[in-house]
Design a protein around this nucleic acid. Structure first.
Lengths: 132, 132, 132, 132
DNA sequence: GTGGTCTAGACCACT
DNA sequence: GTGGTCTAGACCACC
C-alpha cells in the first residue's frame, strides 16, 4: 500500500497515517497478517521523523489495529473489538451524525445520501454477522 | 436552542459550539434568520471565556453558516454553499468514508449500517432538490 | 500527591508515572476532578523531559483515567469502563495469576495470601456494585 | 508440559517462556527435578530462534527456578528463595497492589475480587508452611 | 535489522 | 499559562 502525508494539513501527520492504515484495513487493501513498512523505511520515504511514524504504529497497536513484534516489524492484526454493544453504537452514531450534518450543509437530499452510502458501502469489507 | 459544552472532551470548546450550531441547523432546530444568543450571554451561561464564544461565531461566519450584524447580533444565514458539485461530492465522500471505516472497525455489518443510516436520516432536514 | 521516578528501573519512566496515577486513583488518593501537576512543573520537579510526562498523561487519557483540557491542565476522569464482562474478567485473571505465581515462588501459603489480600483490599476504593 | 508462544504479544518471547515455566512450577505441572526440553528441541518446535530459548533458560537459572547441568540438560530446581521475610513480603505486596489497582479500574467490587482469588488459589501448589 | 524510550528544543493551539 | 506536535539524534531491547 502507498502511504502519503500532507504537512500542510491541520491533522497531525501521525493521525493521517493512522487514518490511512484504518481505511486500508476497512477496505481490504491491508489484510490481517500483512506487514507494514518499517518505521525507518516509511519515515525516510515520507521525509518525516521516525518518531512520528513510530507514534502512528504505537497508537494503532493500542487500538488493536496493528500488532508489532519486537525486532521483527509491524503487522495488521486480526481484529476483535472488546467494546460493549452500547459503546459501539454510540461511537458509530456520533460519527454518522457528523457526516449527516455535513451532508445537509452541502445541500444533498436524503435520497442522494442514501444512494451514495449504498454505493460506497461496497468498497468496504464489512463483517457478515451483526454486532451491535 | 440549548447550548452546552463538555470541558472534558478533547474537542476544543469553540469547535463544540460550532458543531452544535451546524447540527442544529441541519436538524431544523435552528432556522435561517433565527438569532443566536449574544456572546456575553452565552459565555456567562456556559461559564467559558467570551473569546471562546466569539471565536466560534467568527468561524461560523467565515463558513457561511452565520451572519453577524454589527451591534445587532448573530443570526443563522440562509443556506448556500459556494462549492462546485464536484467539490461538494468530494467533501461528503471524505466524511462518509471516515464513518464507514469506523463502522467496519466497530464490527458492524453492511445491513446494520444501512439500517442505522435510514433511521438517522429522518432526524435531519434535508433539502428536497438534489445538489451534488 | 507525590510523584517519583527511578531512572535505573527497567520500567520506562512514563509507565512508572502512569502506574502511580492509576494506583493513586484506585486507592482514593486521587479523586475524580482533581488536577494533576502541569507537564512542565512535574517534569522539572522529577528532572525528566517534558515529553516524557506528557506521554504518561496522553496514554492515561486514552485509557480513560485522565482528562486533559487544552490550555487548562490535566484532571482525574470520572471512570467508566467500556469493556465487556468477559474482557474485564480475562484481564483481571491474567494479572491475578501472575501475582499468585509469584506468591508460590516466594514461598507463601494459601492462607497467608488470602490474609494479605483481605488486609490489602481495605486500602483500595472498590465500587460497591458488582461488574464482571 | 506444553510450551507455546504468541508472537503477537507485546511481551518478548523469552519472557513468555519464563512465565510459563514459573506458572507451571507454581501450579504443580512442573515438579522439582523434572527435565525441560532441550534448547534445540523447543526452539524448533516453537519455530523461534534458539538464542531466544537459551536466554529464557539462562535467566530462569539466574532466578533459581532452573538448574542446568552442562551437557546434560536443564531441570527444575528445588524451591528455595534466598530472600528475607521482609523482602519477600514487599515483593509480593508490590505485585498484589498492581493487581488490585487493575481490579478497581476494571470495576470489580471487593467481594468479587475475594471470590475470584479464592477460586483461583486452588489451582496453585502453595507450600503448607508459612514463610512471609 | 527491527521497534521502544528518552532528551533537547522548537513551534503551535487553546483558554 | 496550559497541553499537542514535530524534529534531531542518541541509546537500548529483541530477534
Amino acid at each position: 500500500m502507498n502511504f502519503q502525508c500532507d504537512t500542510a494539513s491541520r491533522s497531525p501527520i501521525y493521525k493521517q497515517l493512522m487514518d490511512q492504515v484504518r481505511e486500508g484495513v476497512a477496505q481490504g487493501r491491508l489484510a490481517p497478517g500483512e506487514r507494514l513498512p518499517s518505521v525507518r523505511q516509511l519515515s525516510s520515504e515520507l521525509v518525516v521523523n521516525p518518531n512520528t511514524v513510530a507514534r502512528a504504529y504505537t497508537e494503532l497497536e493500542r487500538d488493536g489495529v496493528v500488532v508489532t513484534r519486537q525486532g521483527v516489524g509491524a503487522f495488521i492484526a486480526e481484529r476483535q473489538s472488546g467494546l460493549t454493544k452500547k459503546a459501539r453504537r454510540e461511537k458509530f452514531l456520533e460519527s454518522l451524525d457528523r457526516t449527516l450534518t455535513e451532508a445537509v450543509h452541502l445541500g444533498f437530499s436524503a435520497d442522494e445520501v442514501l444512494a451514495l452510502v449504498r454505493d460506497r458501502l461496497t468498497r468496504f469489507q464489512f463483517s457478515s454477522e451483526a454486532a451491535g
